[in-house]
């Protein structure tokens, strides 16, 4: 039985090799991707989508996805740093949320201990108000905030998460005191959305996807997205272009364990570069509605550094981290 199976494998491989599209060394890769979250969440979906793209495009021979859930990724990264040191076939999906979670959880392990590989996708934050709200523009929200930050209630995700950080950044950019924002964390996207639709809060802040169908149905008014000023469009205006200087995105990326050789790192970066260009990956991005924000290698390492520094500063300003 096993003999037969092995034979089948070989002939399949041979067939793939004959097909010719397979690129030399990378095709021998047997990757392991860890999603530091339970199955079903965003990081898990990213890992499983990568698995799909990498194998279908023939970039890797096999890809195994494992889940290590817990504490905003703190447990997963601890496992990556401690148990996978020097393993050139191991990757871990992570994202901006982990930057904040590691800080607020006072994790002894930091992202500096990992080997950054590539940023894959990004989702911009959207600020919305109920359709019947007197607030029409981001500027008016900023003015209300400046007048009395207590009266502007925000609904978004958990404390210290990207929504909370974005709200604090908005207040800061608006000239209000970010420590005085009345931010109310909700557990799931649905719960926060219900509070906004029901007019319980002044404004809502979350990834654009959470609000999209409500905005299209006219139940919510989109004040703007946290996109850079030059990327705004008529139906997705940039907040920065409205004079409030805020630029933040909830990105997802992959990192490798510490202690891998330069060659191993290069192989992983090359594999990611190839995946990002593949038709399979592009199709997945389109299907899931994920925005491509691919940056790899040292450029991504630099972004990761900047994001860590900025997040630490803003979390300190809302009191979640002692600076």
């Amino acid at each position: 039985m096993t003999q037969f199976r092995k034979g089948l494998w070989r002939s399949a491989l041979a067939a793939a090799a004959v097909a010719g599209f397979v690129t030399s060394a990378a095709a021998q890769m047997e990757l392991k991707i860890m999603a530091p979250a339970a199955p079903g969440g965003g990081w898990d979906q990213t890992a499983r989508s990568m698995q799909q793209a990498l194998t279908q495009a023939g970039i890797a021979k096999s890809v195994q996805v494992t889940n290590v859930p817990g504490a905003g990724g703190s447990i997963g990264i601890a496992q990556l740093v401690n148990n996978s040191k020097g393993d050139g076939n191991q990757l871990m999906v992570m994202g901006y949320v982990m930057v904040g979670a590691l800080l607020t959880n006072k994790s002894p392990i930091t992202l500096d201990q990992t080997t950054p590989i590539a940023r894959l996708t990004a989702e911009y934050e959207a600020i919305v108000v109920p359709a019947d709200s007197p607030i029409k523009t981001a500027k008016e929200l900023a003015d209300a905030l400046k007048a009395d930050p207590a009266k502007v209630t925000w609904a978004g995700g958990s404390a210290g998460g990207v929504d909370h950080i974005a709200a604090a950044l908005f207040a800061k950019a608006a000239g209000a005191d970010p420590t005085k924002i009345n931010y109310i964390p909700f557990s799931g996207g649905g719960e926060a959305l219900a509070a906004i639709l029901g007019g319980k809060v002044t404004a809502g802040i979350s990834g654009y996807g959470e609000f999209e169908s409500q905005i299209k149905a006219g139940k919510l008014r989109l004040l703007g997205l946290t996109t850079p000023a030059n990327q705004g469009t008529a139906d997705k205006p940039s907040i920065q272009a409205q004079g409030i200087d805020i630029d933040i995105a909830n990105w997802r990326a992959v990192v490798a364990p510490p202690g891998i050789s330069a060659d191993q790192k290069k192989a992983l970066v090359d594999a990611m570069d190839e995946m990002a260009k593949s038709a399979e990956w592009q199709a997945i991005l389109k299907q899931k509605g994920w925005e491509d924000s691919y940056v790899s290698g040292d450029a991504f390492a630099k972004i990761l550094q900047q994001e860590q520094a900025r997040t630490k500063e803003i979390l300190a300003s809302v009191g979640l981290v002692k600076s």
């Binding site: 817990g70 958990s158 404390a159």
Partner: peptide, 14 residues
């Protein structure tokens, strides 16, 4: 969830 601080966790991330 509202303050982002851990309670009765004694530093165990799990």
């Amino acid at each position: 969830i509202l303050s982002g601080q851990s309670r009765l966790s004694f530093g165990v991330p799990e």
